[in-house]
Each structure stands twice: as structure tokens, then as C-alpha cells.
């Protein structure tokens, strides 16, 4: 399987019918504070669902529970028809089938760019180093950074670091890519290079769930936009409708504050 084939998310076994991701009644509280209050969500193959909402509305927590970085308090999540919130399942193997990109990049500062990208291939997917590096270089080529493979993360700009993080998330050929405000930590002039890359990934057929404040990006790429408020999906629909002609007062208030 080539690295390119991995990007579009349809190769390999288990390309099941039905949604790639299904979230049903997910609840999560930290102490008294209810962060997710019964979230329902489907992401079909090759679709891009965008989560919008104020800080603290639960977007990041939802992505973290989907990636099994946090346990749900109730409800269930399915990946390609398999319930991943079942505690009997091997969470490491399930996480390896998803890619996650974080707001603050979270690259490993003690590893060169190439090692950041090959780490999961070698340890999780048990690919021999030469092949892992070949794949990683192809992926770095894909994000336009093959020339910086031997640099350390702190020698790169924020936009470059985030593109490396995306390459790192993609190299295991994930079925689903989770993106958590991936441009929020970037200087304005660096946002474009990252969003352009995401637009390309979408065009290649990647299945994506994206938390973002970039409404322009949402309009351009999203198949569906979900507005989260206080841990619930208050409104969902096509981007033109939710962003252009919201049905809910809360959505209108949120969008007005952004403008």
C-alpha cells in the first residue's frame, strides 16, 4: 500500500458500509462541570464535518473522547461499525486507526522531523525502518516538507510544524482524521498553508472531523457544520445554511460575535 493510497482512506479491508464514525449520546463531565451533554454525530466516508462553537463548548473534548484520549461517561462511539467505547477493546489498536492533529502541534521536540513521522510506523505498524522512512518521506513530500526531514521541530515555523504533525497523523493511513483547531496557534500569515493542505486532503477523499474557528474554511470544505453550545449540538446542516442563514438564535449570536 503506498502512502498516497493511505490518504484517501478507502483502501484496505474494512471499508464498511455505513458511517466511518458514529457518536451516540456521548456524555462527559469533569466533576460537576458537564462538558458533553449527549452528543449525536455521524461522519460518512470521504465527508468533512466541521464543529464550530465558542471556547468551552466541548469541541476539543468531543475529539479527545473519539480518539479515546478521554473516557466517555455515557453513550457510545463506533468506528467503521465497531464500538470503540467498549472497554474490552484494545484502545491502542483503535487509536492507530485514527489520526489526530492538535492545536499546539505536539511534535516530539527531541526527534527530528523524519523520526516524528516514522515513530508510529515503526512501533505500532511494525514497518521496518527503511520502508517506514520511505513512506514518511513520501508523506513529507505530500505536505511540502521533504527538504526539512532532518530538522528538529523548533527549527520550523508554526505552519511547517503543523504540516509535519499532519504528515505524522496521516502516515498510518487513518480511516478518520480528527483536527482540533489546528490553525488557532498559528500567526495569521501561516494559517493559509495549513488550510490549503486540509483542502487537498478533503479532495483526496479523506474522512475528517474538524473543530475550527475558520468560518471561511468551513464554508469551503465542510459537508456538514455542527454548532456546539454547552455540550450539545444546537444546530447542524449544510455550511451555507448554518453559517449563512442559521435557524437558531444561539448560532446567530455566536456568528455575530465572530464577525
Amino acid at each position: 500500500m503506498s502512502a498516497e493510497a493511505g490518504v484517501n482512506g478507502v483502501t484496505g479491508p474494512g471499508a464498511a458500509v455505513g458511517p466511518v464514525l458514529r457518536v451516540e449520546g456521548v456524555r462527559k463531565a469533569y466533576g460537576e462541570h458537564v462538558v458533553l451533554d449527549g452528543i449525536d454525530l455521524d461522519v460518512d466516508a470521504h465527508r468533512c464535518v466541521v464543529l464550530i462553537g465558542a471556547s468551552g463548548s466541548g469541541k476539543s473534548t468531543l475529539l479527545r473522547t473519539i480518539d479515546l484520549l478521554d473516557d466517555v461517561d455515557d453513550g457510545a462511539i463506533w468506528l467503521e461499525g465497531e464500538e470503540i467505547t467498549d472497554p474490552r477493546k484494545d484502545a491502542d489498536a483503535l487509536r492507530a486507526r485514527m489520526g489526530m492533529v492538535f492545536q499546539a502541534f505536539n511534535l516530539f521536540p527531541h526527534m527530528r522531523v523524519l523520526d516524528n513521522v516514522t515513530l508510529a510506523s515503526r512501533l505500532v505498524h511494525k514497518v521496518a525502518r527503511p520502508e517506514a522512512e520511505e513512506r514518511a518521506l513520501a508523506m513529507l513530500e505530500r505536505v511540502g516538507l521533504a527538504g526539512r526531514a532532518s530538522a528538529f521541530p523548533d527549527q520550523l515555523s508554526g505552519g511547517q510544524q503543523q504540516r509535519v504533525a499532519i504528515a505524522r497523523a496521516l502516515v498510518g493511513a487513518p480511516r478518520l482524521l480528527l483536527l482540533d483547531e489546528v490553525t488557532s496557534a498559528l500567526d495569521p500569515e501561516l494559517v493559509g498553508e495549513v488550510l490549503d493542505l486540509l483542502i487537498e486532503l478533503k479532495a483526496d477523499g479523506m474522512t475528517m472531523l474538524v473543530a475550527t474557528h475558520e468560518m471561511g474554511f468551513a464554508r469551503r470544505v465542510a459537508d456538514e457544520v455542527c454548532f456546539l453550545h454547552e455540550g450539545r449540538v444546537h444546530e447542524r446542516g449544510a455550511p451555507d445554511q448554518v453559517l449563512g442563514d442559521p435557524a437558531q438564535q444561539r448560532t446567530r449570536d455566536f456568528l455575530r460575535r465572530l464577525a
Binding site: 479527545r64 480518539d67 484520549l69 491502542d92 489498536a93 487509536r95 492507530a96 486507526r97 485514527m98 489520526g99 489526530m100 492538535f102 499546539a104 505536539n106 511534535l107 516530539f108 515513530l119 508510529a120 512501533l123 505500532v124 505498524h125 504533525a165 505524522r168 497523523a169 498510518g172
Partner: peptide, 19 residues
């Protein structure tokens, strides 16, 4: 967040600690 990044790639707790 370093551990979160490692675990999100599918590394086990021990692998994340070690690497």
C-alpha cells in the same frame, strides 16, 4: 500533551514512556 500525541498515534503507555 506529549503523551496524548504519542497515544493518539497508537503507541502503548510503555512505548510512549520509553520513546
Amino acid at each position: 500533551s506529549q503523551v496524548a500525541a504519542a497515544r493518539s498515534l497508537g503507541l502503548s503507555r510503555g512505548q510512549a514512556m520509553r520513546h
